[in-house]
Design a protein around this nucleic acid. Sequence first.
DNA 1: GAAGTGTATGTTATAAGATAACAAATCGGC
DNA 2: GCCGATTTGTTATCTTATAACATACACTTC
Lengths: 106, 106
Amino acid sequence: MTAYEILDQLKNEEAGLAPPTVYRALTALMDEGRAHRLESLNAFVSCQCAHVDHAPVLAVCDDCGSVEEHADEIVMDRLTAITRATGFHARRHVVEVHGSCGACAA
Amino acid sequence: MTAYEILDQLKNEEAGLAPPTVYRALTALMDEGRAHRLESLNAFVSCQCAHVDHAPVLAVCDDCGSVEEHADEIVMDRLTAITRATGFHARRHVVEVHGSCGACAA
DNA sequence: GAAGTGTATGTTATAAGATAACAAATCGGC
DNA sequence: GCCGATTTGTTATCTTATAACATACACTTC
């Protein structure tokens, strides 16, 4: 869901809302780990995982738009290790996979 | 480098260029594997790797803006495997790491 | 309690990123 | 050469995100 889609929905309930309000709320939710940014679609998804420290792997179905969330510490640790080889200090990971979900791929 | 930064530069050499032209060129370059999209910054980077089939891991320094490119088949394969557990058919990977590069972290 | 400072919130305006739409040119097949 | 498909260039508009500003609120100091 993009910020503007959220805005359109909230406008039906609460007149006069503007983009900054939505973005601030989304930023707060992400800081709490309750929502994730989906960079490749300029969108946001609510967190479906039990609270983990690592960013999730988001699998996006290009056909139906569904988003699956996978927590995988091995990937994140490997990313941190790869980049550490050049002295890089990793702080935030963005991991997204585009494809077709099980239902659409069948 | 964002598309508009590229556009500004090209405008000095070739008057009258417009965004679509730049985006088309960038799309073509990405199709050839000669450039990569940096989703989290709405930017593009030229490909520095020997030609690999997999999307690279892009490590972005939030301090100086430098971008390191790492090719790692293990990460990509694991991403494909994780998502395949639910029948997902992976086609495109987005893997980016934000942090501080070796020079800035020192 | 009043004043000052910093932060949060809401609103307005604008910046930044991207694409739709259209016209013209080019290419390939017949 | 003609026609349809594709490519290229241009104009216009859409989409996403943030800067800027005003106001309110919270906290600290006197």
